[in-house]
């Protein structure tokens, strides 16, 4: 089956992102395709390039990135929710006159229309919210 996930909880603050990752890893372990993870609301913080958790805690950003590297999962971040919360890729940082960027590939800023498309084009969309 083709799965998409919607992640709406921030990393470390709530269980949502942890649960999403465990579910994601189970989906691919069972031989299904996890094609898209969409980050919305506070879930956009899971794409923070500069996240530096203690070494004895799971690195959630790296684990989401690994879904892309190992399984080709697209990691899509709502641009409106991201910009408000300081998640900018190099292009948006330049456009807004910011010195650094906080989001990079394989995470990509994209519109909410992509969430609707993912929901309608995949067999399942599973939401993880706080």
């Amino acid at each position: 089956m083709r799965y998409a996930l919607l992640v709406q909880g921030g990393p470390y603050s709530d269980q949502a992102a942890h649960s999403a990752l465990r579910f994601a890893e189970a989906v691919v372990a069972r031989g299904h395709r996890l094609e898209t993870v969409f980050f919305y609301h506070d879930g956009v913080y899971n794409a923070a390039r500069l996240a530096a958790p203690p070494q004895d805690e799971p690195h959630l950003v790296d684990r989401f990135r690994a879904l892309h590297d190992d399984h080709g999962t697209q990691l899509k971040v709502c641009i409106a929710a991201g910009l408000r919360r300081g998640l900018l890729d190099e292009r948006e940082a330049a456009r807004h006159g910011k010195q650094g960027h906080s989001l990079e590939a394989p995470f990509e800023l994209t519109g909410l229309g992509q969430l609707i498309d993912a929901g309608l084009s995949h067999d399942r969309l599973i939401t993880f919210s706080p």
């Binding site: 919305y40 609301h41 929710a81 519109g111 909410l112 229309g113 609707i116 498309d117 309608l120």
Partner: peptide, 19 residues
Amino acid sequence: SSWLREGLDAALVAAAFGR
């Protein structure tokens, strides 16, 4: 919280895409 606003945004985008 921003849940209502962000939920409404999703609804408006879906409608704008012809859903």
